[in-house]
Computed example of a mutant assay.
Amino acid sequence: MAETMRRLPAQRRSRETVQRILDAAESLLVTVGYERAVESPALLVEKSGVSKGAFYAYFTSPDMAMETLALDYMERSTAMADDFAAEDYGSWEEVTARAISTYSGYYRNPAVRELWLNGHLSPVAVAADERANLYIATRLWETLRRIEPERTTRLEVVHCAVAIEILDYLLRFAFRHEPDGNAQLIAESIVAMTEYLRTRIG
């Protein structure tokens, strides 16, 4: 759970209450959009089925609930990086392909598109997003160095950070107007990331 909450839920029942609020926030993002979802706590309270007191015990506003939801997505994205870093690969291309396949579907989630692509991330969430991308890049770098230590001696974390940013920004471009993404733009984002890494690996 995000540290920006009013307080963190300690007991199972409290965690379940917070999760109901976050599930409701995600549902509202998809059905009514961010602006409508945050204009009043009443909609989020009603959708989650919790009392107003329970809502305010953890969140000061619907915006904070949305921020917490965004931060939870970022936690999931870094956990996915740990997953692909834990596997064995035959080449650096296989590592890159797995990283791409892991994240290329991220923007298929309509709630993610509403938060990221429509500019609804808070300053706290934007900073966390940058940290998450750097973490993913670091795990990519560690995996590439582990799989092909001789070929990747010139590769630095900054190169992997640039590669991840290339993929992230181009995927946002691909999903900006199409819920399933523009297939040609997705393909081009994969080429751009892979070829950039190729120039740095040699």
Rank of each mutant, 00 (worst) to 15 (best):
P149K: 13
V162R: 13
A174Q: 02
R145E: 07
G119R: 07
E75W: 00
R76F: 09
P149L: 11
A128L: 02
A132P: 00
L144W: 03
R108V: 01
L144F: 04
Y103P: 01
A85P: 12
E142I: 06
S77R: 07
E94Q: 15
L115Q: 05
L170S: 15
G90Q: 11
R76V: 14
A137H: 02
L170R: 06
R139S: 09
W141F: 14
S101D: 09
I166W: 05
A97G: 03
D83V: 01
P110H: 12
R151W: 02
A128R: 02
I136E: 01
L140F: 01
E114V: 07
R154L: 14
I164Y: 05
P123H: 12
D72H: 07
R151C: 04
L134H: 06
R151V: 03
E148A: 15
D168A: 09
Y73R: 10
S104Y: 10
L144D: 01
A99K: 02
Y103K: 00
F84L: 14
R98G: 01
A163S: 05
S91F: 05
D168E: 10
I136H: 02
T138G: 12
R145H: 04
E114Y: 07
N118M: 12
A70E: 02
L167F: 07
W92P: 00
R76C: 03
L155M: 11
T78K: 02
S101A: 15
I164H: 06
Y89G: 13
T143E: 00
R113T: 01
A85L: 02
E150F: 10
C160K: 04
L134M: 12
N133E: 12
N133Y: 06
E165F: 03
D83E: 14
A97D: 08
T152E: 04
R76M: 11
V124P: 00
G105F: 00
E93P: 08
A161Q: 12
F173Y: 13
W116H: 08
G105P: 12
T143L: 00
R98C: 09
L171A: 11
D72C: 04
N118L: 13
L121C: 10
T138P: 04
S122R: 12
D82K: 13
A86Y: 04
R176S: 15
S77D: 09
E150M: 10
S101Y: 04
E150T: 11
E130A: 14
D88H: 12
Y73F: 15
E93S: 10
L140Q: 01
E75G: 06
R98T: 14
V126M: 11
T143F: 00
E130M: 11
R154P: 00
T138D: 14
L140P: 13
A111I: 08
Y135E: 15
E75R: 06
V157M: 04
D72G: 03
R98F: 01
E156I: 08
Y169L: 14
A85H: 07
E75S: 03
S91Q: 11
I147T: 15
